[in-house]
Write a protein that binds this DNA or RNA. Sequence first.
DNA 1: GTGGTCTAGACCACA
DNA 2: GTGGTCTAGACCACG
Lengths: 140, 140, 140, 140
Amino acid sequence: MILDHIFDENQPIYLQIVQRIHARILRGEYQPGQKLPSVIEAAMIYKVNHNTIARVYSELVRSGIAEVKRGEGTFVTTDREILRNMKKTSSETVVEGFLQDMRLMGYSLEEVYDLLNRYADAYSDKKTDEEKINKNDVSE
Amino acid sequence: MILDHIFDENQPIYLQIVQRIHARILRGEYQPGQKLPSVIEAAMIYKVNHNTIARVYSELVRSGIAEVKRGEGTFVTTDREILRNMKKTSSETVVEGFLQDMRLMGYSLEEVYDLLNRYADAYSDKKTDEEKINKNDVSE
Amino acid sequence: MILDHIFDENQPIYLQIVQRIHARILRGEYQPGQKLPSVIEAAMIYKVNHNTIARVYSELVRSGIAEVKRGEGTFVTTDREILRNMKKTSSETVVEGFLQDMRLMGYSLEEVYDLLNRYADAYSDKKTDEEKINKNDVSE
Amino acid sequence: MILDHIFDENQPIYLQIVQRIHARILRGEYQPGQKLPSVIEAAMIYKVNHNTIARVYSELVRSGIAEVKRGEGTFVTTDREILRNMKKTSSETVVEGFLQDMRLMGYSLEEVYDLLNRYADAYSDKKTDEEKINKNDVSE
DNA sequence: GTGGTCTAGACCACA
DNA sequence: GTGGTCTAGACCACG
């Protein structure tokens, strides 16, 4: 399972990693209470300096989606309420942002749905092997 | 027409302005061949340093959506073919990005449509006064 | 007697426990010569690793407020002179630190007293059940 | 005005600098809207690495007491409401913490006042030259 | 071994 | 010159 982690030059690497791990948690790939990779491991996985991962993890902790057990590691929060809220607000942000983008480009709602339908066929096929393994989602 | 231009701290301001002007052109607010605001004017509109606008305009020119007439200013390209292609690729990028985001959060295609329907009602209502003025769209 | 022990993330846990036990001794909750909980017991009470408690106890012994009887456990010192001195220097440290904090925030002495009066009403009421039990104080 | 900045070993340096600058702002030494020393300058003032100051400043910004103007520097917020609230909550925290400390050591309210009076004489005399210069306080 | 802090030195975007 | 990010390498507290 070799994944090359390529980063967008226009955004800090640490934020991009935050978003990726955030997404992995929200889609249940990292379960509530599960231990995240250690800072060192994650640094190797993402091929960045360990300080960058430290920053990523402290962001995750600050947002409440992860917790540190001193000397043991960093864990996904067990507070499923937080996870559900985050999943909700994340989807809201994404959907609203998408609709605003389309609106700003001058598309009507019908055109938006047309475009979506054009891409929808490939939607479920794009799951990676890694994703397929995880069926346990945060939402109940 | 007082607009507050608030910028995302995690992305260069010049790129965000590029995107906004890009969108204004794509939705026909700036017509093909129309003169864009001067660097000084745009600097005042967006409340940023004129160097930032200079960079924005050079980006727009580089992408082909704008052209410089020396001594006259910067103008939207008159090549409608370019504009149509851009609108197409822009929408592709946005739609694909949106679907990928939703997929990464673990939503099924049905859930995506559900969420969209929830926000769709307000879609057309949200047009700003500024937008309502411009009915002339690039698309055919 | 269930107490939730919440620790400040920005200071070592062992130091915080030292301070708490220190305070319990100074206010007579642990009497001179009394046996402190065993390392294992204290580890359960404070919900920390027993290594952490071991460090706490060695700190208490080093400061002279506690003594080890080999094979029996750790005991509060019977030297009441030490306890009186500690209570004196502790209060000095706390009072001086408090006044410095207030001074650094720009408060005049009058304002300090004003603020104190505002909180003084609740002072004696806040004693916990645990504290109320112990009437035997170190001071004369 | 040579000040040696000595740090407590038991707390991160960056947090201690945060607290010091916080206090300087709250007592009006840095006025609303005033520019803080640049990261490089502050690094020299406090004799720490510039990354440490960067962390300090990002903490100050996150708390809302300071703002970054891109390419210009870091400034004390001009929102006096925020400053007043912070001064209020800071004093509350300090006073409550002080009273709790004294209570935990077993002092009665009368004893607390007695101890305070003993130190009060020296209160105003302790102002440093630097502090005396600044008469303009945040509070109105 | 875990996360956290700090230094040194480099590069970049922005004004 | 400003803050921001990143790397490399070190040390520390904690369990």
